[in-house]
Simulated scan of single mutants.
Amino acid sequence: MGKILVTGGTGYIGAHTVVELQNNGYEVVIIDNLSNSDIKILTQIETITGKKPGFVKLDLRDKSLIIEFLKEHTDISGVIHFAASKSVSESVKNPLLYYDNNISTLVNLLNSLSDKQVNFVFSSSCTVYGEPDILPVTEQAEIKKAESPYGNTKQIGEEILKETANATDNLKVIALRYFNPVGAHQSALIGELPNGVPQNLVPFITQTAIGKREQLTVFGDKFDTPDGSCIRDFIHVVDLAKAHVAAIKRMEAKQMAAAYEVFNVGTGNGYSVLELIHTFEKVTGKQLNYRIGPPRDGDIVKIWGDVSLAEKELSWKAENDLTSMLSSAWAWENYINNNPLN
């Protein structure tokens, strides 16, 4: 099996993907600047898989460091690129941070890899669709003006990758447009571990339930949805991680129909924020202290995906339901509360 470079590999989705890669026999080396993750995650990965992945602390905004890294790792055959800032609300408040961290890092990485034959999986997002006209949204849907700088960086990133892949024989790219990853590994040894106040819904739910946060805010309850709250397609992070492995295998088997491909990765089901909260309460027996707040800038009202293309072409399918997602997230919260990494 080849050596896979995973940028942002100590982060939430990255760590779960490293586990799945190693479980499938791949050698993994991680680049991460640890801005929103913890180095101790490497030990957790080793406990799960029996092997600690390679690791280099590196900021992809420094191209010279990437070049030096690649000189020492000449046998890299694939790259899975997670390293990016990922909060919609934060991107609205600080757009330059997002353009610097999400776009310049991608360009630096591609420039550094330009003389290598590389299979490249890009961590994209359903935010590229904006507010879709038709649901479920397919890969052929119109790419509208992004609702946030974060979403715009994913649109720009896809454009850069598509144009670069079409201009060279060295680069093959699969962009995975995924929906809302939640949950944790079944071992409860890795999960979502945000630094500071969580930007995503489920860790805020679990931290409120366990007492780390006083109250959870639901941003809006007057939208055009059955209960007034936003609707999302939530996917278990382990299912999402397995999709990345499937993408690498598709490229290795030379099954791609073009140099650049894109796939939706979700469950194909939409759940509202309030539905998620009530399901968590039912699954865990914990009552959540939450309030209704004003809508946030940049938020999409409702979106869920048509994932039939990924199921067909990647031979992949999401297997975990909402109960599994939330129970695993709660198990992780309890684990990390009793065994803090920091």
Rank of each mutant, 00 (worst) to 15 (best):
R177E: 02
V107W: 05
N101S: 14
S104K: 12
F55E: 11
G11V: 03
A243Q: 05
T206E: 07
I156F: 07
L276W: 03
G228F: 08
N23H: 11
L65P: 00
E142Q: 13
T284P: 00
G298T: 05
M1N: 06
P198A: 01
E46G: 09
D115E: 15
N94V: 07
N342H: 14
S89Y: 04
A241G: 06
N94M: 07
N338K: 14
S104G: 01
S125K: 13
N289M: 03
G14Y: 02
S64F: 02
L193M: 10
L135F: 05
L34Q: 01
D75N: 15
K154R: 11
V202S: 05
S327V: 00
A310F: 09
A318G: 05
L322G: 01
L326G: 02
F69E: 13
L34A: 03
L65K: 14
G11M: 04
I292M: 02
P226D: 09
K286Y: 00
G151H: 06
S104A: 04
V273I: 15
V92I: 15
V262K: 12
S77I: 12
I292R: 02
D133F: 06
P340A: 11
I30F: 09
N289G: 06
T105E: 03
L322N: 01
M256P: 06
T164E: 13
Q117E: 15
S77G: 15
S124I: 13
D32P: 12
S91Y: 10
L96I: 11
D115A: 14
Y290I: 01
Q255S: 11
L113A: 09
V28L: 04
Y99E: 08
A83C: 02
S85R: 12
D38S: 12
W304C: 08
E159P: 00
G54T: 13
N320Y: 11
Y26G: 07
D239S: 06
L322P: 02
I31M: 09
K302N: 10
V173F: 11
Y178E: 09
R250F: 05
H81T: 09
K144H: 12
R177Q: 07
I190G: 06
V218S: 10
Y260Q: 08
E139Y: 06
K254Q: 14
F223P: 02
K51E: 15
V6W: 03
F69Q: 09
E46A: 15
I156M: 11
G293F: 02
E142P: 04
L106N: 03
L110C: 10
A329P: 04
V202L: 07
A188N: 14
T47M: 11
L274K: 09
G191M: 06
V88W: 08
G191K: 09
K144R: 15
F82C: 04
P226F: 10
S112N: 12
S37V: 10
S272C: 05
V118I: 15
V265W: 09
D239R: 04
T217E: 15
Y178K: 07
S315D: 04
D224R: 04
F223N: 04
D100P: 01
I76C: 06
A146D: 08
L97S: 13
D221A: 15
N200W: 05
K71R: 15
T127E: 14
M325K: 01
Q22M: 13
I48H: 05
N166G: 13
L135M: 10
R250A: 14
K212P: 00
H244S: 08
V197I: 10
Y99Q: 02
G268D: 00
D75K: 12
T127V: 14
I13E: 08
R296D: 03
